[in-house]
Simulated assay, not measured.
Amino acid sequence: MSTKKYRYPSVLTIAGFDGSGGAGIQADIKTISALGCYATSALTALPVQNTQGVRAIYPIPYQAVQEQLETILDDIFPEAIKIGMVHTGELVDTIVDTLASYPRAPVVFDPVMVATSGDKLIEDKTITTIVERLFPIAAVLTPNMDEAAILAEMPVHTLDDMYIAGAKIRKLGCRSVLLKGGHLDAQRLTSLYFDAQGAVHEFSFDKFETNNTHGSGCTLSSAIASYIALGKNLLEAVHKGQEYVHQAILHGSDVQVGKGNGPLNHFFNPQQLTKYDLV
C-alpha cells in the first residue's frame, strides 16, 4: 500500500444560508464540490427563505463569524475565497480584519446589494465600507447590472452603459471586474470582464426562458473561485465559471423545485475531487 499523501484544492465560502438549497452557502458548497474542489464555509447570516422569497433574516454574531474564519484558516487554508452578501459595515470589518492576519488568498467578491424586486438590500454607509475595505482585497468583483448602477452611480441598461460603468467600478480599487449582463433586454446576453491591465473581454451566451435561476450569482462567484483554486488564471477562471453557470441553468431549466424561482442543476457534470501531491 502506498504511503504517499495528497491534498485537495480547497475553497472557502463566506456567505449566508439558504435552506431551500438553491443559493447562498448551499449553492456555493454544491458548486465547489461539483467542480472537484473541497468546500469549507463560514456563515455570515441566517435568512429564512425558500424559492418564493425571504421571510426573515437572523444575524450571526460578529465574534462567531471571526471564530469560524479563524478555525478554518488555522486548519484548512484555502486556495481561493468567495465572499457573498455582507450586509453591515461591522461584518465587512470583521471579515477583512480576520483575513489580514493570514497569508493572502485570491478573493472573489459577489457584491449582493439589490433584491430581485429591485429593492436595495444594504445601506449607503455599508456600501462605502465595502468599497474602502473589501474592494482592495478582491481579485475579481462580480456585480450584476443593478449593482453596477449603484457602484458606478449611473443607469445601467445597455451594453454601452456596461462598458462605462465597468470602467468606473474598476477604478474604485479592485483588481478586476466581471459585469454580468443577465438583465440585458437581448436575445444574447453579454457579460464584460475588465481585467487588471484595463482590457475588456466580452462573453456572450444565448438567452433561454426559465425561472430556474435562483442562486446563479452565488454559483458564478463560487465557480470562478473554484477554477482559481484549480490553477486557472483570472481570465480563464472567469470564462470557465460563466460556461459552468450557463450549462447549470440549461440543465435545470425543465425541472420544477418549489413553487417559485427554482435552482440551477449544479451537478449536471460532477467532477471527482481533484488530488494534488502533498508538498
Rank of each mutant, 00 (worst) to 15 (best):
Ile224Gln: 01
Val86Ser: 08
Ala15Ser: 13
Lys120Asp: 14
Gln197Lys: 13
Ile224Tyr: 02
Thr88Met: 07
Phe205Ala: 10
Arg7Asn: 02
Val156Leu: 09
Gly53Glu: 11
Val257Asn: 00
Asn261Asp: 11
Leu235Asp: 11
Val140Lys: 06
Ala167Pro: 08
Val200Leu: 09
Gly89Thr: 11
Glu123Gln: 15
Ala45Cys: 11
His157Ile: 08
Ala42Asp: 01
Lys259Gly: 03
Arg133Ala: 07
Gln197Asp: 15
Leu278Gly: 03
Arg104Trp: 09
Leu151Met: 12
Gly181Ile: 07
Ile57Tyr: 02
Ile60Gly: 01
Gly258Val: 04
Ala15Val: 03
Leu234Asp: 14
Asp277Ile: 10
Phe208Trp: 08
Ser41Asn: 11
Glu132His: 06
Leu99Gln: 01
Met162Trp: 04
Ser10Gln: 05
Pro111Tyr: 08
Glu236Lys: 05
Gly19His: 05
Asp119Val: 07
Ala229Lys: 05
Val245His: 07
Ser191Trp: 05
Thr128Pro: 01
Asp254Val: 00
Thr94His: 06
Gly19Gln: 13
Met113Ile: 09
Asp146His: 14
Leu234Phe: 07
Glu209Met: 01
Asp119Gln: 12
Lys275Leu: 15
Lys240Trp: 14
Ala80Leu: 02
Glu67Tyr: 12
Ile72Tyr: 00
Val238Gly: 04
Thr13Arg: 01
Gln68Glu: 08
His246Gln: 14
Arg188Ser: 14
Ser41Glu: 11
Leu12Tyr: 00
Lys5Ile: 09
Thr142Phe: 05
Gly173Arg: 04
Pro111Thr: 09
Met1Trp: 08
Met145Gln: 14
Ile29Arg: 01
Pro9Met: 01
Thr116Gln: 14
Thr94Leu: 07
Thr51Gln: 06
Gln68Val: 02
Val177Thr: 12
Lys120Ala: 15
Ile130Pro: 06
Gly198Lys: 10
Leu189Asp: 10
Ile81Cys: 02
Leu141His: 09
Thr213Phe: 03
Gln272Thr: 08
Leu35Asn: 01
Val177Pro: 10
Leu189Glu: 11
Phe205Tyr: 15
Ala15Gln: 02
Gly118Thr: 06
Leu99Asn: 01
Phe17Asp: 05
Ala149Ile: 07
Glu236Arg: 03
Ser226Lys: 00
Tyr193Asn: 03
Pro111Met: 06
Asn269Gln: 13
Ser191Phe: 06
Val92Ala: 10
Lys275Ser: 12
Tyr58Cys: 07
Met154Gln: 13
Val48Pro: 03
Ile81Asp: 01
Gly181Phe: 05
Ile76Thr: 08
Pro103Gln: 09
Asp74Val: 02
Val114Asp: 07
Ala15Asp: 05
His157Ala: 12
Val92Cys: 12
Thr94Ala: 13
Lys207Met: 06
Pro106Phe: 02
Arg55Leu: 09
Gly173Val: 12
Arg7Asp: 00
Ala186Ile: 02
Asp206Asn: 13
Ser216Asp: 03
Glu90Pro: 06
Val200Glu: 03
Asp18Ile: 03
Gly241Tyr: 06
Phe194Gln: 10
Ser41Thr: 13
Ala115Tyr: 10
Gly241Phe: 04
Val156Phe: 04
Lys82Val: 01
Gln197Glu: 15
Thr94Phe: 04
Ala138Gln: 11
Ile137Leu: 08
Ser41Ile: 04
Thr88Lys: 14
Asp74Asn: 15
Ser204Asn: 05
Thr142Val: 05
Leu178Gly: 09
Met1Pro: 14
Ile57Arg: 06
Val238Cys: 07
Asn233Gly: 10
